[in-house]
């Protein structure tokens, strides 16, 4: 009982903290970092569904992000769709391509799945560069309108912060619901021992397919938010470095935990900016790499599992 009360007050405290942030942290640069942390939280949550729960190492996740960003941007610019419709379309189109990748996952495991996802992202990236008529090629798509919901325009940083917070919160709830359901247990069973899972009646094809669809759809949603926040999309959204960043967040934060990806996203969005402040540019990325290595050597399972284990020991 005592535990329940404490936990509930912690949730209220955290929610209060997140909801009031723009008031005690008014500098737009800091809000910008938090907005990016929020968008990357959604991406990390979505990658964690595959990497952490089904054990599928997808290194093409930037493709879903990019597909979402371009879908939303093109629909807003060329067809003048409202933001909400574009957002839904981005989620669906990214989810659809996730379905195709999910089908592949049925046949391929481990290293082979890794390479297929990298290749898929590579092709998507080259299409965005070379299909000038549709994507405007390397020139990118400028002038994407700010997000608008029911007549309210998310033009200020503060407004976008709340929008991203809401979507990230939704993504978190979806993930939590999913992994605590029968389906989540099936994911884990498939990760641990696929043959055993199949023998007790877990339909691997259906579950892996569903996991990739949901995961890709979430990444597409993050892409849509990103497009309407930065107001400019170019083929760089498909870059492999986005995927690498997501993997860093999930694994260093703690894969297979609900909090891990978000903690990872927040820390590894803020870290490069903090290093910007702390050192000169020559040392920033060097230190980033070293800190990443040290994190994993000391906390090989990630930050959140390490903290949990530390608490349990006390």
């Amino acid at each position: 009982m005592q535990h329940g009360v404490a936990r509930r007050s912690a949730i209220v405290l955290l929610a209060g903290l997140l909801l009031t942030t723009p008031f005690w942290l008014p500098n737009p640069y800091h809000l910008h970092i938090l907005i990016m942390a929020g968008i990357f939280s959604i991406l990390a949550l979505s990658l964690n569904l595959l990497l952490g729960y089904t054990g599928l190492l997808s290194l093409g996740h930037a493709a879903f992000f990019g597909i979402g960003a371009y879908t939303s941007a093109l629909l807003a610019l060329k067809a003048e769709w409202p933001f909400v419709a574009g957002f839904v379309a981005a989620v669906m189109l990214a989810g659809g391509s996730g379905y195709a990748i999910g089908r592949l996952a049925l046949r391929l495991r481990g290293a082979y799945f890794v390479l297929v996802t990298i290749s898929f992202a590579g092709v998507a990236s080259l299409v965005s560069v070379n299909w000038m008529e549709l994507t405007n090629g390397p020139l990118g798509l400028p002038g994407i309108p700010a997000a608008e919901v029911a007549g309210f325009v998310f033009r200020t940083k503060r407004a976008v912060y709340y929008l991203v917070l809401a979507v990230a919160g939704l993504a978190y709830l979806v993930c939590r619901r999913l992994v605590r359901s029968r389906m989540g247990r099936a994911f884990v069973a498939l990760r641990e021992n696929e043959a055993l899972a199949a023998s007790v009646g877990v339909d691997g094809a259906r579950h892996l397919g569903l996991a990739t669809v949901i995961s890709a759809g979430m990444a597409g949603g993050a892409g849509s938010l990103y497009a309407h926040y930065t107001r400019f999309v170019s083929p760089e959204v498909f870059l492999f470095s986005y995927t690498v960043t997501m993997v860093i967040m999930v694994v260093a934060g703690g894969k297979g935990t609900l909090a891990g990806p978000i903690v990872g996203a927040v820390i590894f969005t803020i870290l490069p900016e903090a290093l910007r402040e702390a050192t000169s540019w020559q040392w920033q990325m060097l230190l980033y790499g070293v800190l990443l290595i040290l994190t994993l050597l000391f906390l090989p399972r990630g930050i959140v599992p390490a903290l949990t284990a530390w608490r349990d020991r006390r």
Partner: peptide, 25 residues
């Protein structure tokens, strides 16, 4: 060596760290 027995993702990420650090080095 210290990470032997950890998952393939963990060693991959250490190598990503090494990649970033050495390239900037």
């Amino acid at each position: 060596r210290p990470l032997r027995g950890e998952s393939i993702d963990t060693t991959m990420l250490v190598m990503i760290g090494l990649w970033i650090a050495t390239q900037n080095g």
